[in-house]
């Protein structure tokens, strides 16, 4: 589904990704772990198509087609979803309106019919219940004044509504209390299916107690330096990253 070969990218002239390879198949959950500054978030943003990250080499294919020339909105329409580490506040933009606009833009781009208000409301009601979000948050401006946990839940709600083929969660577990972590995990587990893939970018092993990964990678210095199964995550928890990166760094 996602195939990354020898990817190099820089931000402000500084090389962040240095020949990264990654292969994700439908149905798989991959965890990408690594110390701060290893390039985890850069990878997530490059995949979503953010400005300011310049890809200097390598290839990224999604379902057999090159991704790098596509606009962010085209990537979304093809089924790529990035849950932000720091979800952006949009004052004055109503959350329900935003969700409907986004869902229908994706559907239009795929040549599908748009959902009318009735069908959308039915869908949104079901998804809100699924991610245990307070219903009034859907009537407020997107993320504006939301708590950290509410923002992350809102990301998971969007994921549940868009039903992406590939969901990339960038440090979605950071700053969450145990209840919010459980909700986020439930949300991710709910969309797990043989057709979908999930990439969890995380610093900590904690999230992997709730979402069991098929593959665990360690990213350091802009490359994948070790790949294993969930046992690797446990090992990282006890030993830290230093033994893999050659630096003395705590997990």
């Amino acid at each position: 589904m996602l195939s990354i070969r020898n990817l190099t990218a820089d931000v402000d002239g500084k090389a962040i990704l240095n020949g990264l390879d990654l292969e994700v198949k439908p149905g798989e959950v991959h965890a990408i772990m690594g110390p701060n500054g290893s390039g985890k978030s850069t990878l997530a943003h490059v995949l979503a198509g953010r400005d300011g990250y310049s890809v200097s080499g390598g290839e990224v294919e999604f379902e057999g087609q090159s991704l790098l020339d596509l606009e962010p909105e085209e990537r979304a329409a093809r089924g790529i979803f990035l849950a932000f580490q720091y979800p952006v506040e949009l004052p004055g933009v109503n959350n329900a309106h935003f969700l409907k606009e986004a869902l229908n833009a994706q559907r239009r781009a795929r040549g599908e019919s748009e959902l009318d208000s009735v069908a959308f409301l039915k869908l949104i009601k079901e998804k809100i219940a699924q991610v245990s979000m307070q219903p009034e948050l859907i009537k407020r401006p997107v993320n504006a004044g939301f708590s950290g946990g509410e923002k992350k839940r809102n990301e998971i709600l969007q994921m549940a509504v868009f039903e992406p083929k590939l969901a990339i969660l960038d440090e979605t577990d950071s700053g969450l209390d145990i209840d919010a972590l459980r909700t986020v995990s439930d949300g991710v587990n709910a969309i797990r299916s043989p057709e979908r893939a999930i990439v969890l970018v995380t610093h900590y092993q904690r999230l992997l107690d709730y979402i069991e990964p098929d593959v665990v990678h360690v990213l350091a210095g802009g490359r994948i330096v070790r790949t294993g199964d969930k046992a690797l995550a446990k090992e990282l928890e006890s030993k830290g990253y230093g033994w893999l990166t050659g630096r003395d760094e705590a997990a």
Binding site: E71, E73, A76, A77, L82, V88, F98, A102, A105
Partner: peptide
């Protein structure tokens, strides 16, 4: 970028903001 990453085309995203 947040709006576009959700599938909303650039011109419409500007308008919404």
């Amino acid at each position: 970028f947040y709006l576009r990453s959700r599938g909303i085309p650039s011109a419409r995203a500007r308008q919404m903001l």
